[in-house]
Design a protein around this nucleic acid. Sequence first.
DNA 1: GCATATTTGTCCGTATGTATA
DNA 2: CTATACATACGGACAAATATG
Lengths: 239, 239
Amino acid sequence: MGSTDVTAFADLEQARGLLDRTSTAERVASILRDRILEGSLPPSTRLPEDLIGQALGVSRNTLREAFRVLSHERLLVHQINRGVFVRRLTADDLVDLYRVRRLVEVAAVRANDRLGEEQLRPLRETVEEGQAAAKDDRWVDVGTANIHFHLALGGLAGSPRVDAVLRQFLAELRLVFHVMNNPREFHEPYLERNLEILTLLEAGDIDAAARALEAYLNEAERQILTVLASSERTAHTPR
Amino acid sequence: MGSTDVTAFADLEQARGLLDRTSTAERVASILRDRILEGSLPPSTRLPEDLIGQALGVSRNTLREAFRVLSHERLLVHQINRGVFVRRLTADDLVDLYRVRRLVEVAAVRANDRLGEEQLRPLRETVEEGQAAAKDDRWVDVGTANIHFHLALGGLAGSPRVDAVLRQFLAELRLVFHVMNNPREFHEPYLERNLEILTLLEAGDIDAAARALEAYLNEAERQILTVLASSERTAHTPR
DNA sequence: GCATATTTGTCCGTATGTATA
DNA sequence: CTATACATACGGACAAATATG
């Protein structure tokens, strides 16, 4: 589309094109964020300033700025005089994340008496995104589409700030998805449940959709919690 | 407790005591945050790195780390190659902030079927905090107590993350309170309304309390919006 | 438990680019 | 349009904290 081929490197030079309206620190944060969310930097990974700085070709100062924002996003934890690590979620974190999801997503759905076409469209699109991924056995992408569906649900609140916080919470949640080592088994069942919620919303039954959503969240929480509990016994949190 | 007297300076040396578990950047962020929220750094104020760095006795690198976190908290805006400024809220921001307040605070209240004593206590304390401040004509403190009351309402969700985001949104909101130049006229009426909400909660009428809260928020939004609209015509936002 | 190596925290100097009087 | 002020980003320095043999 642009000059030659862009898809190859997802690195620093990426956004260096015509509109360089972002600082180096932001670009670095973006790269690290992607790496963390896709799982190539798993929880508890240490990120030494020297190493990462050289790998990305930026100075330590710039890198530290990027670390600050990712720490604020709760994707990294900053331990003073020890460095930064990829966050490892505890069971408490997981419980709290589902608590806020229930609060925010359900409230967003209930914020509407009925839904117009422009509100339903993103929901349909993300459901289809998941179905398409499933048909090609791209189960990790199914998980991503699932997150997009729930972001779209949150979008029903019609609030940029709700969008932002929900996006951040769902990103945080992805940190724990990596412990689910069978992505198909984990993500596939939710395809149907998302469709169910969508169908209820299309039928105008907001209340039933909200209750289905709540049930969905409760079950997902319980499912992850069992896996997480067993994995916490083996790998202990670094203090 | 420590060496001599500590209460005098609220500056850098503040937390330098026994437990120096915070970095300079965090302390700087904390100082600037306080200055912004108390209004001594009003919206649109520019914060040149050199000037502020010298004033606080920190290097520009450290200061930039602090700027990053405050930008992420939406108290500063970072304009590339131009520097950072204290955020000036637009009418859209205000509308969105009240939208999320309605969503989060009301949902937090409704999250409980009935309230126990440990849940009511912080609500009572913050109401009393406001009444005490009013009796002494400390109207700015009345505003602070009001924010504390609503934080306590959000606390009914029982979620650290809800607490954190609500705290941040209410901090952001304080940016606009400064345009209300008569703090008494602005804050005094809410004393009674907070008490009303508390009384309903004590009576166990969650639904009525939630509706009173919603009405409260609608009215406050409208009130600020009129003042803000007139002030926006005079002082224009710097792009 | 100690001595040493590594890494972070913080500062400074400086070159380059960008915005503005 | 030029001059000036300022932000961006880098690299080096060193003390203090932490990890390692």
